[in-house]
Design a protein around this nucleic acid. Structure first.
Lengths: 356, 356
DNA sequence: CTGTTAGCGCATTCAC
DNA sequence: GTGAATGCGCTAACAG
């Protein structure tokens, strides 16, 4: 296999200049039909791939990005996403990337609206969005589309929008999976509560809804629908949670398992623990510090995770690559693997630099 | 935070030339004590990080690598490792990397010796080794050390050698994990056979031994050692396997589960299937095409995997980075995550480009 | 439209 | 030892 030709050599072969080849390569226009064809002919004969290094080094332009996600606390889900983004910024430090961070309370729609209003005031090259509320995000995106500001979603797709890319998981599959795991744990012996979180001013997030559909689907498939009980809890009212839990357990003495459809399983773990109901098998989503704590002591049986760092990393990467090459990939939605984490494989997921 | 200084600016501040700064940065020597200190002082004040792009572009040198692993068939474990390596070569195509591939039969020690003998004839810049036989690999490495040829291990560490880096999994943990999974499947009801593979001219590989230790450890921990039965099978004598299996099952009618300590679980799956013993729960290692086939039909319950593509990718990366910067990382062994794959999360592991 | 040219930041000559 | 000069491959700016 021959050495790869360089721009200059392609230019020679096509009887044009390097500048023209560059214009054709990145279809920046301003090339006559004739010359374009000449260049494309040469390009067709060989396999050219632009040298990312030379490219990056010549492209000495800065990019202003805004990242808008639920509050990214260290050790929580969005903290991991943030880490991934920061890691990517760091890795791309040769490109001058300036990030502005804006966050909102994912359980409070007003807070989200306020954050989105801030976005309207800014004029970045691209926005990374961690969406929660469907309608509000659609409205934001309509405004961004109008202003021709591209955006990338992390964690979830929002229908009716036109993102450059989306990094997420197949949430329904996650639901199937956690349902299947739980059915193994409880073994037809009793019932399973499916917990959700109370939100201010809006229904469940898209992701949560899809996960629940996945659980339902699995239990229906197994002919065990009647074993599912639905309930919810609050992220801040612990006393209320306790009361609800006590009456729930009284009402359904045959509860053997609990699924929390988001990352707050640790709240239920603590509650069950304090009520002396460690016999109830528990499983939830995401490798957060608090979940890890309960996973280690087997109070959470398994965690279903979706590579938040990688999502953040790839999202930043996608934004930059779009800004540089203005190319949209055909497959907008990129699915991450769904990881199953139990105490034994925990150490090699947590903080593992190999995971990017 | 201020913009990062460039070599030229550092040179100015230190009152030296760019050349000198470069010599200090990569301690290539030939710098007077005095100037070195001046440069290091400036370096201490700021945070300099060399621009990998400019670096890569200036460093216009080619590298000759040799990859020596068990035969890398598509759809099998080593095929995945190969894919990862090729992917990395592709990604680094700006650097001129030339790979020579040498393979051996992992179940035949003579074949391995022959491959290693070939290595002695070559004079590459670095070798990527997928080791199987411990003593033979140690001997090879001693010769490589003598010839000052650096090497990287993929898949397993071999004690008594000095690799630049090793990409592997904590195999004992994998054993713990598969043991724990199996104990969930069979639920104290019956016994578990642990299968291994017959090898020509040597005992089990290091990885296999560690995995078995992990299973033993877990069952001992649970006070269930008596439930384990050890057996083995051949990769090519199917008729012999069938006979052995029949007599094994006759001897132990209470077998409820089977663990295969390598990637050849599909052989046992097929055998059990043909014997009408689909009731025996089966689990093994690695996401190979044949295992996937049985996983999809639930004839294999779960696969334990160790990111072979990523291992290959990182190994190539480590080799190049060592060749360029001559720096050895302190943590030679890099552990990959241990993935649990069941039918539900299979699609997002298999061929998922997001996994690198 | 098109060709020429001047860098980008670093590594490596090669004189001094 | 040391600095100045050159080039890597690509892109952007500019003159025509």
């Amino acid at each position: 296999m021959a050495r790869q030709l360089k721009v200059k050599e392609i230019a020679e072969r096509a009887g044009v200049s390097a500048g023209t080849v560059d214009r054709v390569l990145h279809n920046r226009g301003k090339v006559s039909e004739e010359k374009r064809i000449a260049v494309e002919r040469v390009l067709g004969e060989i396999k050219y791939k632009t040298n990312i290094h030379s490219s990056a080094i010549s492209l000495r332009k800065g990019y202003r990005l805004v990242v808008c996600t639920p509050t990214a606390l260290k050790g929580e889900y969005w903290g991991a996403v943030k880490r991934g983004i920061e890691q990517a910024v760091d890795e791309y430090s040769d490109i001058d990337i300036h990030c502005t961070w804006i966050s909102y309370d994912q359980f409070d729609i007003q807070s989200c609206l306020k954050a989105f209003a801030q976005l309207d005031e800014l004029d970045p090259d691209c926005i990374l969005i961690g969406p929660t509320f469907e309608k509000e995000t659609q409205e934001l995106c309509a405004r961004l589309d109008a202003r021709a500001i591209p955006y990338v979603f992390v964690d979830a797709m929002i229908e009716g929008t036109r993102p450059v890319a989306v990094f997420s998981c197949d949430q329904k599959r996650s639901g199937n999976l956690i349902g299947a795991l739980m059915s193994h744990f409880i073994l037809q012996e009793g019932k399973v509560v499916v917990f959700n979180i109370d939100r201010k001013g809006n229904a469940h997030s898209q992701n949560t809804r899809e996960r629940i559909m996945g659980v339902d689907e699995y239990f229906r498939f197994r002919g065990m629908e009647s074993k599912l009980i639905k309930s919810s809890f609050s992220v801040d009212d612990m006393e209320g949670n306790r009361k609800r839990m006590v009456s729930l357990l009284a009402e359904h003495p045959d509860i053997k398992g609990a699924l929390v459809m988001n990352s707050r399983g640790h709240i239920i773990a603590e509650l069950l623990d304090s009520l002396g109901r460690g016999d109830i098998k528990l499983s939830c989503f995401d490798l957060t510090d608090k979940n890890i704590e309960y996973l280690k002591t087997w109070k959470i049986g398994a965690l279903i995770c979706q590579r938040p760092e990688l999502q953040g990393f790839k999202a930043l990467q996608a934004a930059i690559s779009y800004l540089i090459y203005k190319k949209r990939d055909n497959d907008v939605i990129k699915y991450m693997p769904i990881d199953i984490i139990v105490p034994f494989n925990l150490p090699y997921y947590k903080d593992n630099i190999q995971n990017l």
